[in-house]
């Protein structure tokens, strides 16, 4: 009888729920849970142990970045590297906000972006790491189109283009609607393509499926018989039965973005260098330096398996020199 009397008394004197809970079993139950949650929160906030090399930026460079990270991790299992994509524009913006350490870029940094970096007090280093072509792709089942001229491409992609059906592009082609896939405006590939083909960076029709992820463009075109898209050629290293690359008449006849055509300049208007930008503040960290160094040192070897074209060896030598010099200057 006694215990009940006591607890009844307690309940009468104070707000019942709170007090009774405080006296009874609830604290015993929730104390470990609270302690656990607290530990988790402190672990999260004191994140010094969780140093990570954060890589972002152009999806055109993503397969190579992943290959380099994977290669480095195979040699050094303690490497902590994360690779994400956000397009060249998003990547460079995040680099200049201090959100990531390394950003891939499918074009050199623009003056506006450089100013943003300077304003934020972030210095950076840009190193060319590989080359690729912008590939024009159609579905593998589309056998009617072998080659496009730069003029036709311009007519197809210019702002408010009247081309809706394949026949509008060339009278001999079928009357099917062209479903277009291409990079969005946060993409370096978009900036480059519009500049070269349409003549002004950023000038493009807008009624097409836009994404900053080259991989999604490839998947989209692979899934639609009458689709057409443009993207970094590394993303076209895929099943030949679903995707076909169309040759472009660049003035040297119809040329495909093969390794030779990209490196000897026959695909030149649509081939470009891909860059790695790294914040100098991050580069003083051993793990970031090792990743960037490994990137430049192994880019030529890994380019071959991932569908890129390696730069001349002298370019990589210059990149490594540049890195070594920042190492010397760093405190």
């Amino acid at each position: 009888m006694k215990p009940r009397a006591r607890s009844l008394g307690a309940a009468c004197r104070a707000p019942p729920a709170v007090l009774a809970a405080a006296r009874r079993g609830l604290p015993a139950m929730s104390a470990p849970a609270c302690a656990g949650l607290l530990a988790v929160l402190t672990a999260a906030c004191g994140g010094e142990g969780g140093r990570v090399v954060r890589v972002g930026g152009s999806s055109s460079l993503y397969p190579l970045s992943v290959a380099v990270a994977d290669d480095l991790a195979a040699a050094r299992p303690d490497a902590r590297i994360v690779v994400a994509t956000s397009g060249t524009v998003g990547g460079l913006r995040r680099l200049c906000e201090g959100g990531i350490d390394v950003s891939g870029a499918s074009r050199p940094i623009s003056t506006a972006e450089a100013a943003l970096c300077r304003a934020a007090g972030i210095d950076y280093l840009g190193i060319p790491v590989a080359r690729d072509g912008i590939a024009i792709v159609v579905n593998a089942a589309n056998t009617v189109l072998e080659c496009l001229t730069l003029g036709e491409l311009a007519r197809l992609w210019e702002p408010s283009s009247p081309v809706r059906r394949w026949r509008d592009l060339r009278p001999a082609l079928p009357a099917e609607t062209i479903r277009l896939f291409g990079p969005g405006s946060d993409s370096g590939t978009f900036d480059f393509f519009t500049n070269v083909v349409v003549g002004r960076p950023g000038a493009s029709r807008v009624d097409y499926y836009q994404t900053e992820d080259d991989n999604l463009i490839a998947r989209g075109v692979a899934g639609d018989r009458w689709a057409l898209g443009y993207l970094g050629s590394a993303a076209t290293v895929t099943d030949r039965t679903v995707l076909r690359t169309v040759a472009v008449d660049t003035g040297f006849g119809c040329v495909l973005p093969t390794g030779e055509a990209v490196s000897d300049g026959r695909y030149s208007p649509l081939s470009r260098d891909l860059y790695l930008y790294v914040a100098l503040g991050s580069l003083t960290r051993r793990d970031v330096y090792d990743f960037v160094h490994h990137f430049v040192a192994s880019a030529a070897r890994l380019s071959r398996t991932t569908g890129y074209v390696a730069l001349p060896a002298a370019e990589y030598g210059r990149g490594l020199d540049l890195l070594a010099r920042t190492r010397g200057e760093a405190p």
């Binding site: 988790v40 999260a44 994140g47 992943v66 990270a69 480095l72 991790a73 590297i81 690779v83 994400a84």
Partner: peptide, 9 residues
């Protein structure tokens, strides 16, 4: 893509 499994939140 990460080269490691998460060990903390």
């Amino acid at each position: 893509f990460t080269t490691f499994a998460p060990v903390s939140p």
